[in-house]
Design a binder for these strands. Structure first.
Length: 425
RNA sequence: GGAGGGAUGGCCGAGUGGACGAAGGCGGUUGUCUUGAAAACAACUGUGGCAGUGAUGUCACCGGGGGUUCGAAUCCCUCUCCCUCCGCCA
């Protein structure tokens, strides 16, 4: 959510930002309009309230002084004012409701250094590292490898739960578990994150806080009877950890890391990415979340992204960093990098991490503030990034480390996490 | 799932319709005293909206929402959460 005062005073900048985001539906003009109505109603209703407050006190005094006639006369007048207040209140509530609804659907304006383009075609590869593997045989995609080795069972996954579900077995399951543990250890021991284990189902207000609702409810699973929403990423519960809090300045920055399942309906593009485990309804992810002071937001995005990149580097996977263009930026981010790894079998770059800076956009929605040294209170900045998404790293390892005999070599950093195992076969 | 009891400011805790944004205590900040600290004493010490350049004024907030009333922390309804006992369960 944006600061309405900023919006009032920066109409042109706001319009320009919405144009860059290529979001024609953002109801920012309605919001400004409703804001004006809201303030005018507020002034009127509050003047009447002030009048009633003094009148009511007067009534109390008159009764104490046994001047019942005067008191009753005043009471009648106050009743009239009360009716007026009630009428205005109804109007005010409706305006405020519509105002908030509009505010919640206005995206975060991009930073100035975000590449400007209407869609993902404007994304810029800003860094590329590592060698794509060479093979003296035709490398297979992971769905073939997984089937041959008996470690990815798509058929039974579908039998249990339908399309876009899968079962990992043996080496693949172990590999995924090893990855999660190693990721967590690196973030905790080397990058200063605190590990947390959050709920996987949250209330609606948490989804609003991170910006998943109201606009993107169609990709979320939810309990039909109760107010439980299944998290599409650990970002949701972890960011909401400090909802409605004022954090003491000395406590910042706060770095959290969590390993959770992620549930996504993935309703879009029925025919796309159907093979294998690249795009599925349930997957594991290690997610980093940061709460920082505003002046450090920009630098924190760089260090956050590095914290993810070192993982793919140490796994020996070819990777690149992509700066996301304005038209491809998510609703909540003001700047975002994706990290992609090369998958030699399916011959494509896989997005394994998204690192985003939100400025105070989420903090306003979730009401997360901090008390500065001078005692004043401000919203924090939040950031998050995958570190990393698991099935896709599993894909990349299977495809890049495959051998002529069909076996998979386990990357060296993971061997201690797999009981010294060097091969999956 | 059943029965009962709760939710008040950073913390503890008083307050059952009228001067209550809320006693008192703790904590915190500042000042006096002191070489310094402690103690003592004094003052200050919640968040947000709106109007105003500002001093300031005003409104709202006593778990959330709604209602009764001239007036609600206080009465009514409802939701959420916490505690105790029973049941069930890993």
């Amino acid at each position: 959510m944006l600061d309405i005062r900023w919006m009032r005073e920066n109409r042109t900048a706001l319009a320009e930002a919405m144009r860059k985001l290529n979001d024609a539906d953002a109801p920012w003009e309605q919001a400004l309009d409703l804001d004006e109505q809201r303030r005018s109603l507020l002034t009127r209703v509050e003047t009447l309230r002030a009048e009633r407050n003094t009148g009511s006190k007067e009534i109390g005094r008159l009764f104490q002084e046994k001047r019942a006639d005067e008191a009753n006369a005043l009471k009648a007048r106050m009743a009239e004012i009360g009716d007026e207040i009630n009428a205005l209140d109804v109007e005010l509530r409706s305006v405020e409701e519509r105002f908030l609804a509009a505010m919640l659907r206005i995206p975060n304006p991009p930073e100035d250094d975000v590449p400007v383009a209407p869609d993902e075609s404007g994304n810029v590869v800003v860094k590329e590292s590592g060698q794509k593997p060479r093979f003296d045989f035709d490398p297979l995609p992971h769905w073939d490898l997984g089937e041959r080795l008996g470690i990815i069972d798509l058929e039974r996954g579908a039998r249990l739960s339908g399309s876009r579900f899968y079962v990992l077995k043996g080496g693949a399951a172990q590999l995924q578990r090893a990855l999660a543990n190693w990721f967590l250890d690196v973030h905790v021991e080397e990058h200063g994150f605190q590990e947390v284990y959050p709920p996987f189902m949250v209330r609606e207000e948490c989804m609003v806080g991170t910006g998943n609702l109201p606009k993107f409810g169609d990709v979320l699973y939810r309990d039909a009877e109760e107010d439980y929403w299944f998290i599409p990423t650990a970002e949701v519960p972890v960011t909401n950890l400090h909802r409605d809090e004022i954090i003491e300045a000395g406590a910042l920055p706060l770095y959290y890391v969590a390993h959770t399942p992620c549930f996504r309906r993935e309703k879009v593009s029925a025919g796309k990415d159907v093979r294998g485990i690249k795009r599925v309804h349930q997957f594991e992810k290690v997610e980093m979340v940061k709460f920082v002071e505003p002046q450090h937001g920009r630098d924190e995005l760089e260090s956050l992204t590095r914290s993810a990149e070192v993982l793919v580097e140490r796994l020996g996977l070819p990777w690149r960093r992509v700066a996301i263009a304005t038209g491809d930026l998510s609703f909540v981010a003001c700047k975002k990098y994706d990290i992609e790894v090369w998958a030699a079998g399916s011959q494509e770059w896989l997005e394994v991490s998204s690192c985003s800076w939100f400025r105070d956009f989420q903090a306003r929605r979730a009401n997360i503030r901090y008390r500065k040294e001078d005692g004043s209170i401000e919203h924090v900045h939040t950031l998050n990034g995958s570190g990393l998404a698991l099935p896709r790293i599993v894909i990349a390892i299977l495809e890049n480390y495959q051998q002529a005999d069909g076996s998979i070599v386990v990357p060296e950093v993971l061997r201690p996490y797999m009981g010294g195992r060097t091969r999956i076969d």
